[in-house]
Nucleic acid binder design. Sequence first.
DNA 1: GATTCGTGGGA
DNA 2: TTCCCAAGAAT
Length: 323
Amino acid sequence: MPVSAPAPGPGPTPGPASVSASVPAAPVPVDLPATGALHGAVIDWFDEHARDLPWRRPDAGAWSVMVSEFMLQQTPVNRVLPVHAEWLERWPRPADLATESAGEAVRAWGRLGYPRRALRLHAAATAIAQQHGGEVPREHSELLALPGIGEYTAAAVASFAYGRRHIVLDTNVRRVFARLATGVEYPPNATTAAERRLAAALLPDDEGTAARWAAATMELGALVCAARSPRCGSCPVADRCAWRLAGSPAHEGPPRRGQTYAGTDRQVRGRLLAILRASRTPVPRALLDTAWSEPVQRARALDGLLADGLVERLPDDHYRLPA
DNA sequence: GATTCGTGGGA
DNA sequence: TTCCCAAGAAT
């Protein structure tokens, strides 16, 4: 039997406030059959098939989890692994990173992409050192107040690092729920109130079980319920998947436009920053000019990096990563 | 709510 | 080769 989506109309309010401050008090599922069996099937699968990732090991602290979550924002696991290991060895605690310059964080970020995340992680570490006694906060609201931490990352750190009960809605979980419960191939482009309601309704009541459920549904989305070619033959809940029971209908609506990259400011920024990462000494403007031939776009990209705080301009028209 | 923000690997 | 997209956040 497929998992039923929340039905409109009156009903009991969803779980305690510990779910998340942003879960709307809204119509609630009247009947969610066999959620206990659902939890068990997914969590049992997770116990057997979960990847052995460094930030999941018993000796991994909250800082390791937090660093991994920053790096995993839009970057695949296999590319994060080596950089995460370097960071944890070099900066075992938030206070260690906080003593470094922001530029060192950007340099050590390497080619993970979206280097503003390095800046924000450095700023978050500084805030933790100065305002949280050097300990990664346990509360969702405190995590959310840190730079670079949004709704998802706050819930992920609280859940994975501290075993707290939160809805953890990343792209994997949203896709799993879209198929399993809603019966469509892909979730909406942006997270909706209906998705939060559904996730809250499916969240196990027990705190420890909820944390396992969050990790398990995410792993299921990453390994089995993949975006392109789902491996339904290996799925522990294929027999109750609404999308599959409906005949796996193709996604309706316009295809989400891919982000063309070649020729964009982002590519130019990437080239400029690669030059700056590679140099320990300030770089003359002439060297940066080799990054891109078109002068207007090149100047715009450099201005953007300066505005973002990823680059500093020195008096003699030299440039470097921020001190 | 729509845009912007990197990079690289797999189908 | 081209296209898709990968544990989002900030504006």
